[in-house]
Every structure is written in structure tokens, then in C-alpha cells.
Design a protein around this nucleic acid. Structure first.
Lengths: 221, 221
DNA sequence: CAACTATGAATGAACG
DNA sequence: CGTTCATTCATAGTTG
């Protein structure tokens, strides 16, 4: 991303009496953390490792063990979470289902092809054929010569699996998987006339919150 | 909101390849989202719901799962935040003009709530028996002296004094491993070649990025 | 166009 | 671990 300075939030806000209680990692700290995460496969460091890491990172700024712990926890969790609700490729293939508004949309959609904002290069996680079951702490350069990305923003990769998933499973006769109780019928598509640009009515059924279907009135009034 | 715009802001303008093109929800998308929020009580949709919602909303414009996720997060958070100030801000009716930060500053000024724990719960800085979220691994496991660590942080990211403390304690006679709240059940993965270099002076070489000794450049680019 | 506001995006911290 | 809350940054979009 281009969050201005990005990592230097700490340096940026050090001007005043920052009552900020929470840790503001420096660029170097983040760099090291990501290096450990991606290049070394560190995902859930143990207490000992956390201590070592924090000790090391302390050279670059204030940091405590819990910060390291949380960082890895969050980083890992977010990576998974993101993948979870980003199942379908979402940005480059919108089903144009005949709507008048798409006129403009298509217009710039064509030119706005470029993917996200922070796709630099390939990810590092699988830069080597050997999964990182162990912690490569000691001392050894990264297995594969990896070009360092800019500074911050990790390098998540997208697996644009275009599977045209059923947007709204009406009634899955062949129930295959039971995931969670609320995963039942969340949405009910009203056949095929719900995709009106603006001015339609769609029904959404959310069993988890209410059994009554929801009707959207896009009547614009 | 304030301007009841209601147009397809998506079709606003997009000429330059903004590296930070954040999602601009369309009127229909917002309407549906609010409908879900208010009429259906959806506050924190899960991954599955997010997928469906985003899929549905995609008919009205480009959208990704994370947009839905963030939308609900923000909407909920802000609503809560606003309500939280109504009671205390009866006197300070300053138009909170300028500076986004004034938002929370007013909050503190109004309620003067200690900036630590979250929504009132129970205070627990009691260093007696079981400090709930006490993180022991910091530098040294405080017996119970300081429950709350960084509180009056008036220090900056500097002062990295490279103490020569043993960064990597070998085994140190085992002694008592700080029994972290989670270690009991989380850090029990000692059944494998944990840190291979645990018994030596790990060096943590992270020179893949050109390890600068330290030195924080004042940044400011 | 500057000043300001609403809100999307990000992330540290923590809960269950 | 997945989920949730709080706080902060960045910026689209107005408003004067």
C-alpha cells in the first residue's frame, strides 16, 4: 500500500506526547518480523523464540514480548481470514447481468484493470521446495535469493480460482458439508430477476438472525 | 450520508491509477448493507456470510469480501463510538472541526477515561493471584510488581541501548518457565526439534535486507 | 482550491 | 485460533 510512510508511523507520531499506549512498530521491526514469517516460516513462535525475537527487535525500538506474540498471531490469523472471505476472485470478473448502470462501470473497468495496489512480486512463503517445519534461526541466509519487497505490506498472493461459485444456493439437495449452524441457507435468490441494477427487490434469508426473509425495496422511494 | 448523494459514486472519476483506490460503495450497495445491518441485525457477518453478501453486492459494482468485512466493522464501531460520547459530551459542544484525532481527544477529555482496558469490565490490576492477561515474557517475568506495563509511555522509539544482556539464554537450568496463560496448553509443542540453535548463541541473522546497525533516520524522507 | 467531514482500510490488543 | 474491539491513518467527496 502507499500508506504514506507506511511503517514509520512511529517516527511520524513521535513528535508529541504520544499517549499511544500501543506498540507502534518501526519499519525495521516489521521488516524483521516479516522476514521471520515468510523467509523462515515462523508462524507461532514459542515463548523462548518470542523472547529472542523481541530482544533482537528491541534494537530498533521499544518492544515487548507480547508485541511479538500478538504480531504473529494477528498476521497469521489475518492471512487466513482474508483468504476465508475472499474465496471468489472478486475484483476482475463481475457478472454483468444486463443492467443499465453498467455502462459507466464497464467503461472504467476496462482501464482500471490493474489489480490491487500492493502486488509487488511473488510471495516468499514457498520460495523453496522445502517447507519450513523447523525454525531457521541460527544463521543462514534465505534459502532462495529473494528480492526484498519495498518496505511494508506483505505480499499476499491471490489464488483467483474462478469457480463461479453459486452465489446463492437455493436449496442444496445434495448437502455435502456441514460447517456451522448458521451456514445453512443464508441467501435465497429470487430466481433470476433480482439482478436489476437499481429498482429491484431481492430476498435474503438469514437464518442466523431471523427466519423471516428480508426484502429489499429498491424502489428508490 | 450528509449529502444524501445517492449516486453511483463508483462511476465518479477514475482516470489515474491510484495505487490506493479504496472501495467506493454504490448507493445500492450501501442500501443493502444498511438493510442487513438494521433490518436483519447483521453486525458481524462471518466469512460465509461475507462471501454471499459480497457476491450479491457485486451485482451493483465492484466489491470484495474485505470491503464487506470492513464495512460492518466500521459501521458497528462508529455507531458504538458515537453513542458512547453522547452522554459525556453534553458540555463540550465544540464542533469537532479539523483533525481527525480530535475525535478521540474529545472523548478522553469528556469522560477522562483511563486509556487502558476496553469497555468497562472489571479492573484487574491486582497483582495478587492471577493476573489475567499478564505477559510474563517481556524482559523479565515480573512476579507481580507491575501488572500494567507500558502505561505512561513518554519515551520515543529511540533509546535502544544495546544492552549486553544474554539475548539468548541457553537453558538456564530450566528453572521455572514463566507459566504463561497459554503456555500451559499452547506452548506444549516441545516434541520436536524446536529451535535447533536453542543451545547456542543464536545470532538471528536477518541480513537479507542489509542489516543496518540501527540508527533511525529521522524519516520524514 | 483549501478546509473539513465521512468513511474505507489497517492493525494492535484481546476475548471466548 | 477465529473473532471482535478500539484506535489510527488515508482519502473520497463535499462544502464554503
Amino acid at each position: 500500500m502507499a500508506t504514506t510512510n507506511g511503517d514509520d508511523r512511529a517516527a511520524a507520531s513521535l513528535a508529541s506526547r504520544q499517549t499511544t499506549t500501543r506498540w507502534t512498530p518501526t519499519a525495521e521491526q516489521i521488516r524483521i518480523l516479516k522476514d521471520l514469517y515468510y523467509n523462515n516460516g515462523v508462524r507461532s513462535p514459542s515463548a523462548d523464540q518470542i523472547q529472542r525475537i523481541s530482544a533482537k527487535l528491541r534494537q530498533y525500538g521499544k518492544i515487548e514480548g507480547k508485541n511479538v506474540f500478538y504480531w504473529f498471531q494477528n498476521h497469521k490469523a489475518r492471512e487466513r481470514q482474508k483468504k476465508r472471505f475472499t474465496a471468489a476472485g472478486e475484483n476482475l470478473h463481475h457478472h454483468r447481468q444486463g443492467l443499465q448502470i453498467s455502462d459507466h462501470l464497464l467503461a472504467y473497468a476496462a482501464k482500471a484493470a490493474p489489480p490491487h495496489r500492493r502486488h509487488g512480486s511473488a510471495d516468499f512463503r514457498d520460495c523453496s521446495a522445502t517447507p519450513p517445519p523447523t525454525f531457521a534461526w541460527d544463521a543462514f541466509p534465505p534459502p532462495c535469493g529473494r528480492s526484498f519487497h519495498d518496505q511494508n505490506r506483505d505480499e499476499e498472493e491471490d489464488a483467483p480460482e474462478i469457480e463461479t461459485l453459486s452465489l446463492f444456493p437455493m436449496h442444496s439437495a445434495g448437502d455435502d458439508h456441514h460447517r456451522l449452524p448458521w451456514q445453512r441457507r443464508l441467501f435465497s435468490s429470487s430466481s433470476s430477476s433480482d439482478c436489476s441494477g437499481a429498482g429491484g427487490s431481492l430476498e435474503l434469508t438469514l437464518n442466523s438472525y431471523g427466519n423471516s426473509p428480508l426484502h429489499f425495496h429498491s424502489g428508490a422511494s
